[in-house]
Write a protein that binds this DNA or RNA. Structure first.
Lengths: 252, 252
DNA sequence: GATGGTCTGTACGGTGCCGCACGTAAATAC
DNA sequence: GTATTTACGTGCGGCACCGTACAGACCATC
């Protein structure tokens, strides 16, 4: 199931120059995942890196008592399995599929080798890792300082951005897991959002009715992460047409 | 004030092969910082990367209302200013000095150029960035799930590890800022630790009396971050003698 | 159309931390 | 040695979220 040139969109793959993409294209496999699938566990040896096209995954920190907390959201703008190219062998977090969909997977060895060519892919992956770090930092602060309502709003916004849809499929139970709160707290908070006409919610189907209100209810964390994401995309778009990325010639 | 070969210890610099170190050595400047100094603000353009030898800095996420929350701790095992080599221009977080001390600073351009040689330094910095990511992820979860007492214990342990001392100089006010809680909460929690003979505390001087108890009071987050840190150090030690790092020959 | 599973709503006491206000004691300044 | 600053202690009401328990509402299946 080797991929044609960008049949489905992953923004990082899309931004690669054609010559480089050709090298890895034969090794890309498009695979499907269901909600709840775990791409890898914390400290697990990584066989593949994943470039989502339609799925969305959460990077989760799972605690001793079994509860979890989301560290970051990754969709088609990113990649899963940073530690492959960052020089480690094992996963830095758990990665869990929140919205079913597809991703290109690439064997760790291939990904690492291509990364070590010090070409465009290296730049792209590191650049993306930066946005991931900012998202993690902001999530840390958000967990410390903001209310469940703000966090739910932020989460919904981050996810519909990555879905290009105003509908999210997610039970209160699942939301509680990613946000690291009780299921009842979600019932409470989501209920308020529904009353004020911001969302409608029924048996795991959330529909965003009033995005503007949702943004107002969210905290600055959304804006900060969004800005990073936008900056990254803008940068990727500039490179389109697959010219060489602006990298110092001969630096490697 | 160019540096001799490793006159003070920064573990990353120490782990560089001699040939590479020679290239950057003339550009390293040893500089002193006081507690409270801000090395860079979030989104600030970075002039220098910093390799701490004796100082300890916090990476902080600062919120709209002026409050802050610590995202990670960086000491002589690490580097400050990742975004220089990760391809961005601006700081991903604020970096604030918690314990006065020294660091080697290196102009961004020099650091970036050396990084782009795809040699040992690149590997080292990326490897370190990984441990940083794990620390951030764990801090996120810790903020979500653990009590102020657990977090204070974790913080103290992380810091004395980096100081090789059992004394920490830090007012309750400062502690409240990094942990993202009220000053009074620190009074409360630190008071309990003092009563049970774990620490002694007087006007900004904390002394760890019973490290074992402190570890018991801390959460698993300390162990996880510590393990990452130990693994990194072990890896660096193996490379000592400044042989070439195990990097695929000719990959660049 | 009865059954069992999934998903959501509600209720109640408990607690960890907040916000605020004020008091005190040690260090510093002069 | 008096004044001021810095650091710490305390007390009280409040609130967000927790833990637990249970009830209803919707869905699938047969």
């Amino acid at each position: 199931m080797s991929a044609k040139h960008a049949p489905k969109k992953n923004f990082l793959l899309e931004a690669m120059p054609a010559a480089e993409f050709k090298r890895i294209a034969p090794h890309l496999e498009l695979v499907s995942f269901e909600k709840g699938d775990v791409l890898y566990e914390f400290e697990e040896k990584l066989k593949y890196g994943y470039f989502p096209t339609s799925l969305i995954a959460s990077l989760l920190c799972s605690m001793e008592d079994g509860v979890t907390a989301e560290v970051a959201v990754v969709g088609r703008e990113g990649v899963l399995g940073e530690s492959i190219f960052m020089g480690g062998k094992t996963a830095l977090t758990q990665a869990s599929v929140q919205h079913a969909g597809e991703a290109y997977r690439l064997k760790s060895s291939i990904l690492k080798d291509e990364f070590d060519q010090c070409g465009a892919l290296q730049h792209l992956l590191m650049r993306y890792t930066q946005t991931l770090i900012v998202q993690m930092a902001q999530t840390t602060g958000c967990n410390r300082r903001h209310t469940a309502e703000q966090q739910l709003s932020r989460w919904l916004l981050l996810n519909i951005d990555r879905l290009s849809s105003h509908k999210v499929s997610m039970t209160q139970e699942s939301l509680a897991n990613v946000l690291g709160v009780r299921r009842e707290t979600i019932t409470d908070v989501a209920g308020k959002l529904q009353e004020s006409g911001v969302i409608s919610y029924s048996r795991g189907q959330i529909e965003i009715i009033d995005r503007t209100k949702l943004e107002a209810l969210s905290c600055e964390c959304y804006d900060i992460v969004k800005k990073q994401y936008d900056d990254l995309l803008a940068e990727l778009a500039v490179k389109e047409g697959r010219g060489p990325l602006s990298k110092k010639a001969g630096s490697c």
